[in-house]
């Protein structure tokens, strides 16, 4: 392999947590682009402002699956407002780091969570500051794959 994954990335890739769908989810967010090789879809079940359950489905490489898994672990059981503070760096750090070319996967995971929360706010008619989701409005995730590595 041209890159080395941490043990945590391998663990979350081979045994991903929270895989699946939630029927009648309160919020759903899908980000990414199949032609770029990664799409993440996050389902939220909210009870009393808390993320009672979260599931994901991901089309993508090992780190896309691992970051989806870790992001869902980090927000499960948290207040929705707290989940909104999730950053891609936090996801990457919780996985003991990602190779530079894979950092965009953590960006995608953060955006998938935020898109699902925005969907929840929209459906529930909860008012919010649009600035919270300004980054998502650019359409598609920032496709920064970092430094390229030649094999």
């Amino acid at each position: 392999m041209a890159m080395v994954y941490s043990e945590k990335v391998k663990d979350h890739f081979i045994n991903p947590r929270n895989v699946g769908e939630i029927e009648n989810a309160d919020g759903v967010g899908e980000v990414g682009n199949a032609s770029c090789g990664d799409i993440m879809k996050v389902y939220l079940q909210i009870e009393d402002g808390v993320i009672a359950d979260v599931k994901f489905k991901t089309f993508g490489c090992a780190s896309a699956i691992a970051t989806s898994s870790m992001a869902t672990e980090l927000i499960k059981g948290r207040a929705v407002e707290e989940a909104l503070t999730l950053t891609n760096k936090a996801v990457a750090e919780a996985l003991d780091g990602l190779p530079p070319v894979k950092m965009h996967c953590s960006v995608l995971a953060e955006e998938a969570v935020k898109t699902a929360i925005k969907d929840y706010y929209d459906r529930a008619g909860i008012a919010y500051d649009p600035a919270l989701f300004a980054d998502l409005e650019r359409g598609g995730h920032a496709h920064d794959h970092g430094d390229l590595v030649e094999e």
Partner: peptide, 11 residues
Amino acid sequence: GSACTSGSLEP
């Protein structure tokens, strides 16, 4: 031959 194994953006 996926992009992720080639180390580039392209498959």
